[in-house]
Amino acid sequence: MAPLDLTDPAVVADPYPAFAAARAVAPVQWHEDLGLWLAFTHAESNAVLRDRRLGRIWRDREPADRFGAFNLIHRNALLEMEPPDHTRLRRLVSAAFARGHVERLRPWVERYAAELADGLVERSGGSEPVDVLSGMAEELPVGVIAELLGVPAADRPLLRPWSNAIVKMYEYGRTAEVEDAAERAAAEFVAYLRELAAERRRAPGEDLLTHLVTVRDAEGGRLTEDELVTTCILLLNAGHEATVNVSGNGLVALLEHRDQLGRLRADPALLPTAVEELMRFDSPLQLFERTATADVELGGATVRAGEKVAALLGAANRDPAVFADPDTLDVGRTDNPHVSFGAGVHFCIGAPLARVELQASFGALLTRTRDLQLARPARRRPEFVIRGLTELPVVLTP
């Protein structure tokens, strides 16, 4: 019997009771339908993320001629590489990031978050529900990544639809229509970024894309054209998808735990720990796969070379062996080694920027409102792997 059904609407809506039940059976279990091992505990998930014998081994989607652009943006991605290729590429990308881009953007992010929050509060006026997801949670991270890369304002509405279509390929039980849409989006995104990169070569700026175009390492190496394009797409897809979903999931969690919302409003200094807790409490990414390059003993199971194993990040983040009262939201939780940003060599390179965005977003909403109330239940996306919402109707009282 499979440890859990990832397509069950009840599991998609709230996977945490199913995780707890499965964790009580064994820390690592084989899922016949998915053809991979699942790690349900923090220790085993952490091992999946850190053990160098468990790698990200990219295999092109078949047929290759149907998924040309989708394969290109993964074959050359940091997330799908192992050392030494990963080491070289991460060093180059980190060098470009190290030019102060996060701190450069911090005031801009805070101003933009305030502007979006003001607009929502004005439209709501304490009586009308407004969709905080489309009005702020989606707008802020897309705007930030676009500003980071130097995407012109007129082109920014293109980015989220491309990203949304591409990440649906990571779900189970996809339709042919979903796959075709992902390939179209990848092809359009690649073509757009090739053109934008060419423009930066002609007219450099102070944005991250310019620095990615020009960065070199100590040996004089630089990003290939495909690596450059792929890195930009990864920053958008991984960066904004996670931030959007932490914003949505986190606000719902606060609205359903009014004591913690009040505590955070009364003590804004808790904002940094609150953001970490919201990431732990309802993880934006639930599952991350690895492939064994050698036989690995894991949680009493043997993962054979060539087999896949997945860390269930949401299950790891609710493991009672690591987190006291794991099903309790505690915005002051300080002992919080959550794995929502990953771990090991693939730890999220955009984590510092994500934290800036999330603190700005929640801070702006709390400082500009006296009260927040769900107008009706939030609508959740029907997918398991990328955990998020499609609508978050809230009444904001100035």
Rank of each mutant, 00 (worst) to 15 (best):
M1L: 13
M1C: 10
L4E: 03
D5Y: 06
D5Q: 08
L6R: 11
A13N: 11
P15S: 05
P17F: 01
A22N: 06
R23M: 05
V25T: 15
H31P: 09
E32L: 10
L34V: 10
L36G: 10
E44P: 10
S45E: 05
V48R: 02
L49I: 00
D60H: 10
D65M: 07
P84M: 09
R91I: 05
S94L: 14
S94E: 14
F97I: 08
F97Q: 01
R99K: 15
V102P: 03
E103K: 15
R106A: 13
E110P: 00
A114G: 15
A117R: 03
L120T: 01
V121D: 10
V121Y: 09
G125A: 09
E128I: 11
V130M: 05
D131E: 03
D131R: 04
G135R: 07
A146E: 03
A146M: 04
L149D: 00
P157G: 07
L158R: 15
R160G: 00
Y172H: 15
T175S: 15
T175K: 09
E179V: 06
E183P: 00
A185E: 00
A185V: 09
E188D: 13
F189S: 04
L193D: 03
L196D: 06
A198V: 07
P204D: 08
D207H: 00
D207W: 01
L208D: 02
L209F: 01
L212I: 07
D217Q: 09
E219I: 02
R222T: 14
R222N: 11
V229W: 02
V229R: 02
T230C: 11
L235S: 03
A238L: 11
G239K: 02
E241A: 06
L254H: 00
G262H: 04
P272R: 09
V275D: 01
L287V: 13
R290M: 03
T291L: 13
L298R: 11
T302P: 03
E307D: 11
K308N: 12
L313R: 04
D319H: 02
P320E: 07
A321M: 07
A324N: 10
V331M: 08
F341Y: 12
H346M: 09
F347N: 07
C348F: 08
C348D: 08
I349P: 02
I349D: 13
G350N: 03
A351M: 11
P352N: 04
L365E: 01
L366N: 04
T367I: 06
V385W: 06
V394C: 04
V395S: 06
